[in-house]
Write a protein that binds this DNA or RNA. Structure first.
Lengths: 135, 135
DNA sequence: ATCTCTGTATTAATCCAATAGTACAGTTGC
DNA sequence: GCAACTGTACTATTGGATTAATACAGAGAT
């Protein structure tokens, strides 16, 4: 498993969790697939087993992974895959954080939704432009 | 100046900054108003001057406050008041963070805007309900 | 001049999250 | 039984962020 660790401030265990989360979302990893064992991944990243364990534990709590003791760790079968609702619930605290910031900046909430829409447009355009550049 | 400090994990200097930011946004503090001196506020909160100084420095960077050396610290005249654009720019990194989370959760960006809209509605209702309860 | 008020700078103590070191416990297959 | 693999638990180190202690520097009032 190709995981890139950078010393860019973001904790290692989160970098691992993010990258696996992303692969699952992109269906690059599918339900039932086995992910590297804690020890082997720790070894290949030259990182302590506990660090990988923490990433896996977090993903397990989210219902992304499923540990089978003495067997290994696998991408969970159901849960996150079909249930958008569950994932949406995980996004909620981040929404609240954003709203809190907006309130503190004295920005109206209508303004925030509008600004978010605009920001997404910008990012989308950038993304499609990159694809064109590659073609 | 009535500032409440709680030991709830949020750093003291941020609690101070937040509360002042909020008052300015609510026009409870107006441009030109003087805020308590670093030393006096520090004393009344039983906190180190540097802690208050840090809050003020942050607000100054944001263009909210304006220090006049040997005079005191004042709510800035222009800047934040009329320029929504400036405040919006400060919100941008938070928008990006939210978008990043959404992508990692495999949620479409349209979904995010929709969920944000819904979340805001909930909070708005809760807010108006509280007002009714008080009446 | 000196007292008293501004904000500032430097260094030290403290605390906590992240990570490592290392030993433990269960299962499987030889 | 024992080797080789799973995930886990416990303790120690470290590094960074927060806060404190304390001293500094400028301006105004008396």
């Amino acid at each position: 498993m190709q995981i890139n660790i950078q010393s860019d401030g973001l904790p290692i265990y989160q970098q691992i969790a993010n990258q696996i989360r992303y692969r699952i979302a992109a269906r690059n990893l599918k339900p039932g697939d086995e992910v590297p064992s804690i020890r082997s991944l720790a070894e290949s990243l030259r990182v302590n087993p506990n660090t990988v364990a923490r990433a896996y534990r977090e993903l397990e709590t989210e219902g992304m992974l499923e540990k089978r003791r003495t067997k290994g760790t696998y991408v969970a079968e159901q849960d996150h895959q079909q249930s958008i609702r569950q994932r949406a619930r995980q996004l909620e605290p981040h929404l609240d954080t954003l709203i809190m910031y907006a309130v503190q900046l004295g920005l109206s909430l209508d303004h925030v939704t509008e600004q978010l829409r605009e920001r997404i447009e910008v990012l989308e355009k950038r993304r499609t432009k990159n694809k064109e550049d590659l073609a």
